[in-house]
Design a protein around this nucleic acid. Structure first.
Lengths: 127, 127
DNA sequence: GTTACCACTATCACAGAGTATACCAGCTAT
DNA sequence: ATAGCTGGTATACTCTGTGATAGTGGTAAC
């Protein structure tokens, strides 16, 4: 990415809203799509290079096999991920994020940034 | 904000993760705090300048008085907003976002960006 | 005097998100 | 052979976030 583009992005990101109606709709759409406790952590895990069921499971504290299984199925149906089975022995199942899936990257990064800042905030407040 | 700072921000936003353990924790913390259907739309509405109960309500499609009331109360308890009562006649109640509340700005903007891009995506797919 | 706005609160009810636990078939290393 | 890995399913349960509906007390306009 070029410097110019990055500046433009930063400016757009930081600009003030223009059309509240449209923007609240966009916001609610996004909340609907990434809603729930597990979508974004799963996408994050996949984008971090985890491909196999148990690896993804282990990378997300607190998730159960049931929830992971359910979410992966739904995300495959929604074209967010691709499931590939290699029928060697032993069988290998791999989940890979699609381009569409990668489009959540900025949201996830902002949320990680916020979470880190928040924990710093709590540390300081503990003094 | 200076150009230098903005560039640094853009670079940080777009950088690849380093510490997956810490980052997944930060992500889950954030999801916990902004979880639910209404938090972010309410914060967005407040940041757009809405102060009064009915104004906020009207600015968020689908929300009920009950949910708005509940969320506002909890957000006040969590120092996200300030509630000010002016006991003139008629009584005036105003909700204003705290600095802490403003810290969600980047997340909201990214989600609005995603939502807009998503609707463009759907329009194109309709062809 | 009745309609309507403001700022809510109360009660009831429910789907479905999420949890807990157990289990399965197939493979593999010891 | 038995313990452990992989990639899941099945069953049962909780629980809470959310929705629907109604109502309150005060003010003000027509």
């Amino acid at each position: 990415m070029e410097e110019q583009q990055m500046l433009a992005l930063a400016q757009e990101v930081l600009s003030t809203p223009r059309n509240p109606r449209q923007e609240v709709q966009a916001l609610q759409d996004t909340i609907y799509v990434v809603g729930g406790k597990w979508r974004l952590p799963i996408i994050n895990s996949l984008c971090n290079g985890n491909k196999r069921f148990r690896d993804i499971e282990r990378s997300i504290p607190g998730i159960t096999t049931r929830m992971l299984s359910r979410e992966l199925k739904e995300m495959e149906a929604n074209q967010l991920i691709k499931r590939t089975v290699t029928p060697d022995t032993p069988v290998l199942v791999e989940y890979t994020p699609t381009d569409y899936c990668h489009s959540f990257g900025s949201i996830i990064l902002e949320m990680i940034r916020w979470g880190k800042a928040h924990s710093e905030h709590l540390k300081k407040a503990a003094d």
